[in-house]
Nucleic acid binder design. Structure first.
Lengths: 175, 175
DNA sequence: GTCTATATTGTGATAGAC
DNA sequence: GTCTATCACAATATAGAC
């Protein structure tokens, strides 16, 4: 059995992603995590602590992702585009969940989302050598996430296909 | 004096955009629109009616925008990218506001945002003649809006500059 | 059409048993 | 560490005066 603390964070992230921030109440989170509200509040004394918990998790996962991106054999651009779509990985789910919190108006979520976004752009700039190209690639990735953000609620996701990757190669001057 | 109904919708949109959905309570909307809560609820009998009102407004504004995009002399791609950044136009403000509602979990907001997005893509496909190119341009525009969505809260927006438009021209094969 | 006052409900949080 | 029971408050909504 997974530890309750993690189960609770998972439940919170899922509700945020699938139902939207409005439906991610302490009550709903507790029910989905199979604990009582009291049990939940033992692990996270307030809703803000719950938000903190998810933001911390995103920071860890994003740091790992930035490292993978920096060392990807296919290059950071292709890596970024390939992974900038909602595939249901822990990282995806956490990122979308935090984005919802940010939209709802939680300051900490905004700060974390901002810093993660900046880190990705920096890797693209370093890897591609050109700021404008890096920005264009970053924007396409953002666009994919924007669609994931919306599509996750609707239940529809389309992975970036070879045609899109070909366009990326054209932008980056890669064959 | 602008009619109260419009003032209320404006206040609702502003709060959603600047403070986030959590802070766009009936109380806060009424205060900002300079009406009492009772006055607000005369025009919009429930919060869902308020959401409806904003979604209806977006549908109208988007229909006009799609028309301008279809007939833009610079072509739909450049038009789309140029206008896909938060400039504070009525259209921008309404779109970002509805996006926040969508993220919060209001079904109607999701449906409207979806249909608007689809309409824009269709114009790009018709104008550019190539689905893949159209999708890439659409994604960059989405990326700009994604950044607007996040930046609106942080108070930072950067308009798409000439460098980005040059990249767009490269993608669309335009000189 | 707009107000004040009030009712109702949902949500976040506490207290204390086990 | 987890539960039940309960509280306090904020948010939505109603009623009725003006």
């Amino acid at each position: 059995m997974v530890q309750a603390r993690d189960r609770i964070l998972d439940a919170f992230a899922d509700l945020l992603t699938v139902e939207g921030e409005r439906h991610a109440t302490l009550d709903a989170v507790a029910r989905r995590a199979d604990v009582s509200k009291g049990g939940l509040l033992y692990h996270f004394p307030s809703k803000d602590h719950l938000v903190e918990g998810l933001c911390d998790r995103l920071e860890e996962l994003a740091a790992e992702d930035v490292e993978r991106m920096r060392t990807a054999p296919e290059g950071p651009a292709r890596y970024y585009i390939r992974t900038s779509y909602y595939a249901g990985t822990p990282m995806d789910r956490t990122l979308v969940a935090v984005a919802r919190l940010q939209q709802a108006g939680f300051a900490r979520a905004r700060a974390v989302a901002d810093s993660v976004s900046e880190a990705w752009l920096q890797v693209l700039i370093d890897g591609l050598g050109d700021v404008n190209t890096a920005r264009a690639v970053k924007l396409i990735g953002d666009g994919l996430y924007y669609n994931a953000l919306f599509g996750a609620l609707a239940g529809q996701h389309t992975p970036p296909d070879d045609q899109l990757l070909a366009v990326i190669d054209r932008i980056t001057g890669n064959a």
